[in-house]
């Protein structure tokens, strides 16, 4: 079994030191890897790479879990809104820059997910939401600041088993892209735990390969 722990929006600050130590010390009993969907800190930059964390901003990584390959493509994503009520790459340069930033990140995400074809499980790791479903509870006026349909489109075109995001503190955990990919909003105020765990059972042929 592949066990993915995920959380976002921890918003750690100097006032948070040691607060989650006990929960994360126990992490290896619950999960094979931890995926953080952005906003680890309140502001500023944590020295992530020095601490052995793989940062995925437009990049991918693969992790071997008992012979199964888990591929993760990461981008923070950006806003713009959702189908029928979204910003358009037209008009004033500032608006174009806003929408084009999301388009560029979505394109990178699609490319990253395609490069992971052949992995047993593929995960899109975002900060902004790809769908409206998981924003239920947020005010509709701010949806364009919380995510973009372009991210879902990229995920649906390339294919994935799971899309993780955060950012929407008042949203809900569960959603699905128009193409049927499962979406989970793991913002800590939403999941109300130190992290959530999602599991995948490797296919029978894969298990046979692993033991061959």
């Amino acid at each position: 079994m592949i066990r993915l722990a995920a959380v976002a929006d921890i918003h750690f600050g100097a006032d948070s030191s040691g607060m989650l130590r006990a929960q994360f010390e126990d992490l290896t009993h619950h999960a094979d890897m931890l995926l953080v969907a952005g906003d680890l800190t309140k502001c500023g930059h944590a020295h992530l790479e020095d601490a052995g964390v793989t940062v995925l901003e437009g990049e991918t990584t693969t992790v071997d879990v008992d012979g199964a390959r888990v591929g993760v493509a990461g981008t923070k994503g950006f806003g713009g809104g959702f189908a029928g009520a979204s910003g358009t790459d037209f008009g004033e340069p500032e608006m174009k820059a806003f929408v084009r930033h999301t388009m560029a990140l979505a394109e990178g995400l699609e490319h990253g997910l395609r490069s992971l074809e052949g992995c047993d499980v593929r995960v899109a790791l975002l900060h902004y939401s790809p769908v409206r479903d998981t924003l239920a509870g947020e005010r509709a006026e701010i949806f364009p600041f919380l995510g973009s349909y372009l991210l879902a489109e990229a995920i649906d075109h390339a294919g994935a088993d799971l899309a993780l995001h955060g950012h929407a503190h008042a949203g809900v955990e569960k959603g699905v892209t128009p193409g049927g990919v499962l979406v989970r909003n793991v913002a800590q105020p939403v999941i109300k735990h130190a992290y959530n765990v999602y599991t995948f059972e490797p296919s029978r042929s894969l298990a046979a390969d692993a033991h061959a």
């Binding site: 066990r3 130190a194 959530n196 765990v197 999602y198």
Partner: peptide, 14 residues
Amino acid sequence: LYETAEPTDGEDLS
């Protein structure tokens, strides 16, 4: 305050 308990069980997405 955030609730930060360890999760009790995972969600099977297979």
